[in-house]
Design a protein around this nucleic acid. Structure first.
Lengths: 359, 359
DNA sequence: GTGAAAGCGCTAACAA
DNA sequence: TTGTTAGCGCTTTCAC
């Protein structure tokens, strides 16, 4: 229930003009005598008038809302991306309606439908589904600009932003091989329902190939993208007859679980087993040992998604813009590097992967 | 820009009824012949009709949106609370507009004004401001139900939820004194602009008092609520002539910074200095040593806030409901306890503090 | 049980 | 430059 606040008619009346003039005076569109405009604005300020969104939306067909759909807002990557996006959108007069899908494709689709039905002007979608058909139909149906973020779906999106998943993992594998001489490297990943998971696994394979190492299916364990799975799959990897000397984790939770399992078993990291991780987090430099990861600027990435949406909102639907976010090595100690910083600021290495724009 | 989807008139026309009947058939309010109702609903489904929010809002004065204002959504506490709140609100047909204020009171006020102007039906506010006057004026002005969450502001709020800050910290201090025999305990906190910070500091003081320990101002360091400040203030604490043997941290970031500083200086935790922390996080059990903290059910707390808002939305504005969330010890190793789990599930101790409801 | 019509607050086309 | 007016999509009286 929304209660009485001053309406445009109240402002108009108090200023002794018509609502049309009041509207023009406040919006700046159309011509108004500067004297009148000032008077109307003064009155509006006195009355603490704010135009009622529903009226504007009904008339202009714009909600000034952008939907942001994420699998899990408690992931720092999405949270920081959201902050970056919000910052930019707010500057452009937009607000964010957030939907957390708990990684469930069914909820994602429900979120999509709920928002598409006139609640938002555009959508930033971090899909956790592998199936783009729902998105495609909604994009067509509602002619709604959708920016795909983190995970790509085939044939959809007014813009797409992805991390350099494959190149990033190759960077990690390369570091393990070239700097530390590992020859048998394991991979504990999540089941790849979406592109980013698949690309990371592909990066692992390509990394091995590039360094002339044999790809052994037994060294790859895929489960959920959770701490618990990280623990379990790492345990499974340790049972191997011919054990690995290093493990690559494509996400923070898996690495946390893996590290916990290794510690529980008394396996020394990085002396007995080295580990590296795709995601950086606040805690990563403070773990024991500090985690070697890939660094990126989460907030900027979110801001970029926001810019893409804003662009799609004003421009004709041209070619979808495809951006790959490059990754950089943040070398710490879990890879075996000796005297790297234990502090917070990621010690960013000199290698970098990915390129600014593809397509 | 929102594009053409079917309107209620389209549904009505296709079903051969008036818009009024179509509206009644779909909403279930008013009487419609069951045959007619079924026909209309079938047609609506065929057309994939979704009522356009702005029209409903304009007419009913309800947006079915709840604003959620947080200082920092990348904090897992707020993120999980949001998830809990969203879950409950969605079930009641509401969505969430999120505003992250980056801990800036000016942004908080801007968020408040932006949302109050007809964009939301109610507000869940995690304030980072100590001043309730802006909130009070908005609450009055717009007659908007506001649930205060985590931080309390004087004389405002249709409902208030706080953690048992004081009792929780006392639990931590009590554990350090009773179980581990510490007599000189430091506190590295944030500058208390809001109630929860002040209550935690008060809990520290009360904890000392209860155990007959002298309160020494020199053992208390207050800075920002950040990792960097945790590092700096911990360093300052270590410079003391008469050093402390344990440190209490009232939030996760401060503890992370503190732990990092201690490690950098080669101070062994918990042998030389024991530490405990108010906040639990995913990483806490995986740090070295695993952090002894207070456990709580973040999602449930968010769901509770949502319930309060929903209640305020339907009921007359009765007495504001005041709830304190009790805290429990999750004993790990940073306090000096020996063989506690290193794994993920918090090893919840038997003590608990706080009570279900105050007022 | 159903339809006609009014009106929520706002903007924009048109007239003056 | 300003006012009059229509109408966005929906719900809800009020007649029938």
């Amino acid at each position: 229930m929304i209660a009485a606040h001053p309406r445009l008619t109240d402002v108009a009346q108090a200023a002794g003009v018509s609502v049309a003039t009041a509207s023009r005076a406040l919006s700046g569109r159309g011509s108004v005598a500067s004297e009148t405009r000032d008077r109307v604005r003064r009155v509006a300020a006195d009355l603490d008038f704010h135009p009622w969104a529903a009226g504007q939306t009904l008339r202009t067909r714009s909600t000034r809302m952008i939907g942001f759909i994420v699998p899990d807002i408690s992931s720092t990557f999405y949270a920081n991306a959201l902050k970056g996006a919000q910052h930019r959108l707010q500057a452009a007069g937009y607000q964010i309606t957030l939907m957390d899908t708990d990684e469930r494709p069914s909820r994602e689709e429900a979120a999509l439908r709920a928002l598409a039905a006139g609640r938002v002007d555009g959508l930033i979608l971090c899909s956790s589904s592998g199936d783009g058909s729902a998105v495609r139909s909604i994009e067509r149906r509602f002619q709604l600009p959708i920016v795909l973020f983190d995970n790509i779906l085939e044939g959809v999106g007014a813009g797409r932003i992805t991390l350099a998943n494959e190149a990033g993992i190759q960077l990690l594998v390369g570091h393990l091989v070239e700097v530390h001489g590992h020859r048998r490297i394991g991979y504990v990943g999540g089941i790849e329902s979406e592109t980013s998971g698949a690309e990371r696994l592909a990066g692992y394979q390509a990394g091995l190939r590039r360094h002339g190492l044999r790809y052994d299916e037994g060294c790859v364990r895929l489960g959920d993208w959770t701490v618990a799975a990280g623990r379990g799959e790492t345990a499974a990897l340790l049972e191997l007859d011919d054990p690995v000397s290093a493990i690559v984790y494509p996400c923070a939770d898996l690495a946390l679980g893996g590290l916990s399992e290794l510690r529980a078993r008394g396996v020394s990291v990085p002396d007995e087993i080295a580990i590296v991780c795709f995601d950086d987090t606040d805690a990563a430099p403070l773990l024991d040992p500090p985690l070697t990861v890939l660094a990126r600027r989460d907030r900027d990435i979110g801001a970029l998604a926001a810019s893409m949406i804003l662009r799609a909102l004003v421009e004709e639907p041209g070619e979808p813009m495809d951006v790959r976010i490059p990754m950089e090595l943040a070398v710490r100690r879990s890879c075996g590097c000796g005297q790297a910083t234990t502090g917070g600021g990621p010690a960013v290495g000199s290698h970098s992967a990915g390129h600014g724009r593809a397509d």
